[in-house]
Write a protein that binds this DNA or RNA. Structure first.
Length: 266
DNA sequence: ACCTCGTCCTGGTTGC
DNA sequence: TGCAACCAGGACGAGG
Protein backbone atom coordinates (compact mmCIF):
# COMPACT_ATOMS: atom_id res chain seq x y z
CA UNK A 1 0.00 0.00 0.00
CA UNK A 2 2.23 2.78 -1.13
CA UNK A 3 1.36 5.97 0.72
CA UNK A 4 3.17 9.29 0.76
CA UNK A 5 6.49 8.04 2.22
CA UNK A 6 6.66 5.09 -0.16
CA UNK A 7 5.73 7.12 -3.25
CA UNK A 8 8.14 9.91 -2.28
CA UNK A 9 10.95 7.38 -1.73
CA UNK A 10 10.31 6.05 -5.23
CA UNK A 11 10.22 9.56 -6.67
CA UNK A 12 13.57 10.51 -5.16
CA UNK A 13 15.16 7.34 -6.53
CA UNK A 14 13.58 7.90 -9.95
CA UNK A 15 15.18 11.36 -10.08
CA UNK A 16 18.58 9.65 -10.01
CA UNK A 17 17.64 6.74 -12.23
CA UNK A 18 15.47 8.04 -15.07
CA UNK A 19 15.60 11.82 -15.37
CA UNK A 20 17.48 12.58 -18.59
CA UNK A 21 16.69 9.17 -20.07
CA UNK A 22 15.08 8.98 -23.51
CA UNK A 23 12.42 6.35 -24.14
CA UNK A 24 13.13 3.98 -27.00
CA UNK A 25 10.07 1.77 -26.59
CA UNK A 26 7.30 0.93 -24.16
CA UNK A 27 6.27 -2.71 -23.96
CA UNK A 28 2.77 -3.15 -22.57
CA UNK A 29 2.39 -6.69 -21.31
CA UNK A 30 -1.01 -6.14 -19.73
CA UNK A 31 -3.29 -3.54 -21.30
CA UNK A 32 -5.19 -3.11 -18.06
CA UNK A 33 -2.22 -1.31 -16.54
CA UNK A 34 -1.62 1.16 -19.36
CA UNK A 35 -3.90 3.90 -20.64
CA UNK A 36 -3.19 5.79 -23.85
CA UNK A 37 -0.88 4.98 -26.73
CA UNK A 38 2.45 3.50 -25.72
CA UNK A 39 3.93 4.44 -29.10
CA UNK A 40 3.43 8.14 -28.25
CA UNK A 41 6.24 7.87 -25.72
CA UNK A 42 8.88 6.87 -28.26
CA UNK A 43 11.66 9.46 -28.30
CA UNK A 44 10.37 11.27 -25.21
CA UNK A 45 12.97 12.57 -22.76
CA UNK A 46 12.10 12.57 -19.05
CA UNK A 47 12.83 15.98 -17.55
CA UNK A 48 11.07 15.73 -14.20
CA UNK A 49 9.33 13.32 -11.85
CA UNK A 50 6.96 14.91 -9.37
CA UNK A 51 4.51 13.69 -6.77
CA UNK A 52 1.09 14.89 -5.71
CA UNK A 53 -0.32 12.82 -2.87
CA UNK A 54 0.14 9.22 -3.92
CA UNK A 55 0.38 10.07 -7.63
CA UNK A 56 3.65 10.17 -9.55
CA UNK A 57 3.86 12.45 -12.56
CA UNK A 58 6.53 12.11 -15.24
CA UNK A 59 7.16 15.24 -17.34
CA UNK A 60 8.65 14.93 -20.81
CA UNK A 61 10.60 17.53 -22.76
CA UNK A 62 7.79 17.80 -25.32
CA UNK A 63 5.24 18.83 -22.69
CA UNK A 64 3.61 15.42 -22.63
CA UNK A 65 3.32 13.56 -19.37
CA UNK A 66 2.60 10.28 -17.65
CA UNK A 67 0.51 9.70 -14.55
CA UNK A 68 1.33 6.68 -12.38
CA UNK A 69 -0.67 5.36 -9.45
CA UNK A 70 0.66 2.27 -7.66
CA UNK A 71 -2.58 1.65 -5.73
CA UNK A 72 -2.10 -1.46 -3.57
CA UNK A 73 0.66 -3.56 -5.06
CA UNK A 74 2.33 -1.56 -7.82
CA UNK A 75 6.13 -1.27 -8.08
CA UNK A 76 8.44 0.78 -10.31
CA UNK A 77 11.78 -0.99 -10.43
CA UNK A 78 15.01 -0.76 -12.45
CA UNK A 79 16.28 -4.24 -11.47
CA UNK A 80 16.47 -6.39 -14.63
CA UNK A 81 15.37 -9.43 -12.62
CA UNK A 82 11.90 -8.04 -13.20
CA UNK A 83 12.10 -8.72 -16.94
CA UNK A 84 11.26 -12.36 -16.39
CA UNK A 85 9.09 -12.02 -13.30
CA UNK A 86 5.42 -12.81 -13.23
CA UNK A 87 3.22 -9.71 -12.83
CA UNK A 88 5.56 -7.38 -14.72
CA UNK A 89 2.91 -5.44 -16.65
CA UNK A 90 4.82 -2.70 -18.48
CA UNK A 91 8.47 -2.30 -19.50
CA UNK A 92 9.87 1.12 -20.42
CA UNK A 93 13.08 0.73 -22.43
CA UNK A 94 15.49 3.65 -22.68
CA UNK A 95 18.03 4.42 -25.39
CA UNK A 96 20.80 3.95 -22.83
CA UNK A 97 19.76 0.33 -22.42
CA UNK A 98 18.31 0.91 -18.97
CA UNK A 99 14.79 -0.40 -18.32
CA UNK A 100 12.07 0.65 -15.90
CA UNK A 101 9.61 -2.08 -14.99
CA UNK A 102 6.05 -1.67 -13.77
CA UNK A 103 5.17 -4.70 -11.66
CA UNK A 104 1.76 -5.19 -10.03
CA UNK A 105 0.16 -8.43 -8.84
CA UNK A 106 -3.33 -7.09 -8.49
CA UNK A 107 -3.42 -4.73 -11.45
CA UNK A 108 -5.21 -1.92 -9.59
CA UNK A 109 -2.44 0.50 -10.46
CA UNK A 110 -1.72 2.00 -13.87
CA UNK A 111 0.43 4.21 -16.09
CA UNK A 112 -1.38 6.79 -18.20
CA UNK A 113 -0.06 8.98 -21.01
CA UNK A 114 -1.34 12.53 -21.24
CA UNK A 115 -0.68 15.05 -24.00
CA UNK A 116 -0.26 18.04 -21.66
CA UNK A 117 1.40 17.45 -18.32
CA UNK A 118 0.42 20.89 -17.00
CA UNK A 119 -3.24 19.99 -17.46
CA UNK A 120 -2.72 16.77 -15.51
CA UNK A 121 -0.96 18.63 -12.71
CA UNK A 122 -3.75 21.20 -12.55
CA UNK A 123 -6.40 18.49 -12.46
CA UNK A 124 -4.66 16.64 -9.65
CA UNK A 125 -4.02 19.82 -7.68
CA UNK A 126 -7.71 20.57 -7.95
CA UNK A 127 -8.90 17.24 -6.64
CA UNK A 128 -6.26 16.69 -3.96
CA UNK A 129 -5.78 18.49 -0.66
CA UNK A 130 -2.36 19.81 0.39
CA UNK A 131 0.56 17.70 1.54
CA UNK A 132 0.42 17.57 5.35
CA UNK A 133 3.46 19.88 5.57
CA UNK A 134 1.78 22.50 3.40
CA UNK A 135 -1.57 22.49 5.21
CA UNK A 136 -2.28 25.70 7.10
CA UNK A 137 -3.58 25.44 10.64
CA UNK A 138 -6.70 27.53 9.83
CA UNK A 139 -7.52 25.30 6.87
CA UNK A 140 -7.39 22.08 8.89
CA UNK A 141 -9.25 23.57 11.83
CA UNK A 142 -11.93 24.75 9.40
CA UNK A 143 -12.35 21.31 7.88
CA UNK A 144 -12.50 19.57 11.25
CA UNK A 145 -14.94 22.05 12.76
CA UNK A 146 -17.44 21.50 9.95
CA UNK A 147 -17.68 17.72 9.78
CA UNK A 148 -19.02 14.95 11.97
CA UNK A 149 -17.22 12.26 9.98
CA UNK A 150 -14.92 9.92 11.91
CA UNK A 151 -11.55 11.63 12.27
CA UNK A 152 -9.78 8.71 10.63
CA UNK A 153 -11.96 8.99 7.53
CA UNK A 154 -11.20 12.71 7.36
CA UNK A 155 -7.41 12.34 7.41
CA UNK A 156 -7.34 9.60 4.75
CA UNK A 157 -9.65 11.64 2.52
CA UNK A 158 -7.34 12.74 -0.31
CA UNK A 159 -9.41 15.89 -0.82
CA UNK A 160 -8.59 16.99 2.73
CA UNK A 161 -4.94 15.96 2.95
CA UNK A 162 -3.05 14.19 0.18
CA UNK A 163 -0.90 11.14 0.75
CA UNK A 164 -2.16 9.56 3.97
CA UNK A 165 -3.41 5.96 3.78
CA UNK A 166 -4.42 3.37 6.31
CA UNK A 167 -1.02 2.62 7.83
CA UNK A 168 0.08 6.16 8.66
CA UNK A 169 -3.45 7.23 9.64
CA UNK A 170 -3.63 4.55 12.33
CA UNK A 171 -0.17 5.29 13.67
CA UNK A 172 -0.69 9.07 13.67
CA UNK A 173 -3.95 8.76 15.60
CA UNK A 174 -2.23 6.67 18.25
CA UNK A 175 0.68 9.10 18.48
CA UNK A 176 -1.79 11.96 18.93
CA UNK A 177 -3.79 9.88 21.47
CA UNK A 178 -7.02 10.39 19.50
CA UNK A 179 -9.56 7.63 18.91
CA UNK A 180 -10.04 6.95 15.18
CA UNK A 181 -13.84 6.91 15.37
CA UNK A 182 -14.19 10.26 17.14
CA UNK A 183 -16.29 12.83 15.28
CA UNK A 184 -13.85 15.29 13.72
CA UNK A 185 -15.81 18.28 15.04
CA UNK A 186 -15.44 17.01 18.60
CA UNK A 187 -11.67 17.52 18.54
CA UNK A 188 -10.31 20.54 20.37
CA UNK A 189 -7.93 22.91 18.62
CA UNK A 190 -5.13 21.44 20.70
CA UNK A 191 -6.07 17.89 19.61
CA UNK A 192 -6.20 18.86 15.94
CA UNK A 193 -2.75 20.43 16.19
CA UNK A 194 -1.43 17.40 18.03
CA UNK A 195 -2.84 15.19 15.27
CA UNK A 196 -1.25 17.26 12.52
CA UNK A 197 2.09 17.09 14.31
CA UNK A 198 1.66 13.32 14.68
CA UNK A 199 0.80 12.92 10.99
CA UNK A 200 3.96 14.79 9.98
CA UNK A 201 6.02 12.80 12.44
CA UNK A 202 4.91 9.34 11.27
CA UNK A 203 5.27 10.36 7.61
CA UNK A 204 8.79 11.64 8.29
CA UNK A 205 9.62 8.39 10.06
CA UNK A 206 8.21 6.53 7.05
CA UNK A 207 10.48 8.55 4.76
CA UNK A 208 13.53 7.96 6.95
CA UNK A 209 12.95 4.21 6.84
CA UNK A 210 12.09 4.26 3.10
CA UNK A 211 8.54 3.07 3.65
CA UNK A 212 6.57 0.13 4.99
CA UNK A 213 7.11 -3.30 3.40
CA UNK A 214 4.73 -5.33 5.54
CA UNK A 215 3.07 -6.24 2.27
CA UNK A 216 4.41 -6.05 -1.28
CA UNK A 217 5.96 -2.58 -1.30
CA UNK A 218 9.49 -2.34 -2.75
CA UNK A 219 11.56 0.67 -3.78
CA UNK A 220 13.06 1.38 -7.22
CA UNK A 221 15.95 -0.98 -6.53
CA UNK A 222 13.64 -3.77 -5.39
CA UNK A 223 14.52 -3.32 -1.71
CA UNK A 224 12.14 -3.36 1.24
CA UNK A 225 11.58 -0.35 3.46
CA UNK A 226 11.90 -0.51 7.22
CA UNK A 227 8.81 1.15 8.68
CA UNK A 228 7.02 -2.18 9.14
CA UNK A 229 9.45 -2.88 11.99
CA UNK A 230 8.26 0.18 13.88
CA UNK A 231 4.52 0.17 13.43
CA UNK A 232 2.96 1.88 16.42
CA UNK A 233 -0.44 0.20 16.14
CA UNK A 234 -1.03 -0.78 12.50
CA UNK A 235 -1.77 -4.51 12.21
CA UNK A 236 -0.91 -5.15 15.86
CA UNK A 237 -4.19 -6.77 16.99
CA UNK A 238 -3.98 -7.89 20.65
CA UNK A 239 -0.34 -6.84 20.88
CA UNK A 240 0.76 -4.53 23.68
CA UNK A 241 0.29 -0.80 23.44
CA UNK A 242 3.77 0.75 23.35
CA UNK A 243 2.65 3.32 25.92
CA UNK A 244 0.56 1.45 28.50
CA UNK A 245 0.97 -2.24 27.70
CA UNK A 246 -2.73 -2.94 27.25
CA UNK A 247 -3.85 -5.04 24.27
CA UNK A 248 -4.54 -3.11 21.09
CA UNK A 249 -7.98 -3.51 19.53
CA UNK A 250 -8.99 -3.92 15.91
CA UNK A 251 -12.23 -2.47 14.64
CA UNK A 252 -13.46 -1.48 11.19
CA UNK A 253 -13.86 2.22 10.41
CA UNK A 254 -14.88 3.27 6.92
CA UNK A 255 -14.54 -0.32 5.76
CA UNK A 256 -10.87 -0.54 6.72
CA UNK A 257 -8.94 -2.23 9.49
CA UNK A 258 -8.38 0.19 12.34
CA UNK A 259 -6.15 -0.36 15.37
CA UNK A 260 -6.14 1.63 18.57
CA UNK A 261 -5.53 1.58 22.31
CA UNK A 262 -8.75 2.06 24.28
CA UNK A 263 -6.84 3.35 27.29
CA UNK A 264 -4.46 5.79 25.61
CA UNK A 265 -6.66 7.10 22.80
CA UNK A 266 -9.66 9.12 23.92
C1' DA B 1 -23.29 15.91 3.03
C1' DC B 2 -21.94 11.64 4.26
C1' DC B 3 -22.30 6.84 4.87
C1' DT B 4 -21.97 1.90 3.28
C1' DC B 5 -21.18 -1.22 -0.09
C1' DG B 6 -19.50 -3.08 -4.49
C1' DT B 7 -15.82 -3.06 -7.97
C1' DC B 8 -11.27 -3.88 -9.65
C1' DC B 9 -7.55 -8.22 -8.69
C1' DT B 10 -4.36 -11.74 -6.77
C1' DG B 11 -2.05 -14.27 -3.29
C1' DG B 12 -1.63 -15.34 1.37
C1' DT B 13 -4.16 -16.83 5.40
C1' DT B 14 -7.89 -18.92 7.82
C1' DG B 15 -11.32 -22.39 8.76
C1' DC B 16 -13.68 -26.61 8.30
C1' DT C 1 -3.82 -32.24 4.19
C1' DG C 2 -7.00 -29.99 0.83
C1' DC C 3 -9.66 -26.71 -0.75
C1' DA C 4 -12.81 -22.96 -0.53
C1' DA C 5 -13.88 -18.81 1.58
C1' DC C 6 -12.10 -14.78 3.26
C1' DC C 7 -9.14 -10.71 3.66
C1' DA C 8 -6.01 -6.80 2.39
C1' DG C 9 -7.57 -1.64 0.70
C1' DG C 10 -6.87 3.20 -3.00
C1' DA C 11 -10.07 5.39 -5.61
C1' DC C 12 -14.39 5.78 -7.48
C1' DG C 13 -19.28 5.27 -8.32
C1' DA C 14 -24.01 3.75 -7.01
C1' DG C 15 -27.60 3.87 -3.85
C1' DG C 16 -29.52 5.13 0.67
Amino acid sequence: MPELPEVETIRRQLLKEVVGEVIEEVEVRDVKCFEGKASELRGEKIVKVSRLGKYLIFSFESGKGMEVHLKMTGRLVVDDEYDKMAHTRVVIKFRSGKKLYYWDTRKFGYLRVVSKVFRLLNKLREKLGPDPWMAKEEYILGVFRKTSRAVKNVIIDQKVLAGIGNIYANDALWLARVRPMREAKSLSKREVNRLMDAIREVLERGLETKGASNDTYRDVYGYQGGYQDEFLVYGRTNEKCLECGEGLERVVVGGRGTWFCRKCQR
